[in-house]
Computed example of a mutant assay.
Amino acid sequence: MTVKKKLGIIGGMGSRAGACFLQKIIDYSPATSDQEFLEIIYHNNAAIPDRTRAIVYNEPSPIDAILRSVDLFNRNGIEVITLGCITSYYYYRQITEHTSAYVINPLHLIFESIKEDYAGALRIGILATTGTINSGLFHQELGSNGLDIITLSHHDQENLFMRSVYMKNGFKSAHISQEARDLMKRSIDKLSEQQVDLIIGGCTEVSVAISPDVVDFPYIDTLDLLAKRTVDYCYNLEKINYLKEWIRK
């Protein structure tokens, strides 16, 4: 097997989502023995301030705490970094300026996935935190390529999706209630009712709630896509060659 790259994962945003991502990395790895798995430093950095509250309400920025993880990786020769929170990629430039490791950005992967697997999809529904939506991360990446970005109404965004994530026993909790699961499903139903061609699960908590293999409509799980492409890149597999274009950006 070819020489593998050392991977650093910043988790804790939330902890369950980060663990979900780590499990996906293991599941998608082409390893047949202990020694063939990737060398990974997983930092469950639960001290990182909330990204949505920083972006929407100007509360404390998470960047210093994120860079604490990056410093840990820099000291240990990590070559590739990923983050277990889509909203945190709002700080992508600041992160890349702080390390020589390659930081894989899932926003850079989404358009390629749409072109390859969902050609003709124009109305793209985004299920993500208010921080991600307000920051325009998906709007910038996909809107600039001629796609229409569809989101939930303000009422449904806050009272269905965000509530399912942040409520007591929501998807950021250690124990997830049936009420939270029902609210998440209703938010997906509401988005699909807007005649979208494709839904993107643009929040890592969506990945906790929904398994891509049980969705019966066109759907991209951003965390799942990031895990697959991270494995490809760390194992130096041919199909990830197009990422070299993003490295130069």
Rank of each mutant, 00 (worst) to 15 (best):
H139W: 06
L142I: 11
I150H: 08
I126P: 05
G131K: 01
L142Y: 10
I149S: 12
I133S: 02
L122P: 01
S144W: 04
E141T: 10
T132V: 04
L142G: 10
G125F: 12
N134D: 07
G143V: 11
Q140M: 08
L122A: 10
T151Y: 06
T132G: 03
F138Q: 10
G136E: 06
N134C: 07
N145W: 00
I149N: 12
L142T: 08
T132D: 07
T132Y: 04
L122M: 13
T132K: 02
I133M: 04
I133H: 03
A121I: 01
I126H: 10
G143P: 09
T132H: 04
F138P: 07
G136H: 07
G125H: 14
G131W: 01
E141V: 02
I150R: 11
I133V: 15
I124P: 08
G146E: 05
R123D: 14
N145A: 10
S144N: 15
E141M: 10
D148E: 15
S144C: 08
L147R: 12
T132Q: 06
I150L: 12
T130E: 12
E141H: 13
L137N: 01
A128F: 07
A121F: 00
I126E: 11
S135G: 14
F138D: 11
S135E: 08
L152E: 12
G146Y: 07
E141W: 00
G131R: 03
L137S: 05
G125Y: 11
H139L: 14
G131S: 02
I149Y: 10
T151L: 03
T132F: 04
F138N: 10
R123P: 02
S135D: 13
A121W: 00
I124E: 09
L122H: 15
D148Q: 15
Q140S: 14
Q140W: 02
G143A: 13
F138E: 12
A121E: 00
A121R: 00
H139V: 13
Q140C: 07
D148V: 09
A121P: 00
G125A: 13
I149F: 09
S135W: 00
L122S: 14
T130H: 00
A121Q: 01
F138H: 15
T132I: 06
G146M: 06
A128S: 14
T151P: 02
I149D: 13
R123H: 15
N145V: 03
N134G: 01
N134T: 04
F138C: 12
L142R: 11
R123F: 06
G131H: 01
E141N: 08
S144T: 15
N134R: 13
N145Q: 15
R123I: 04
I126V: 15
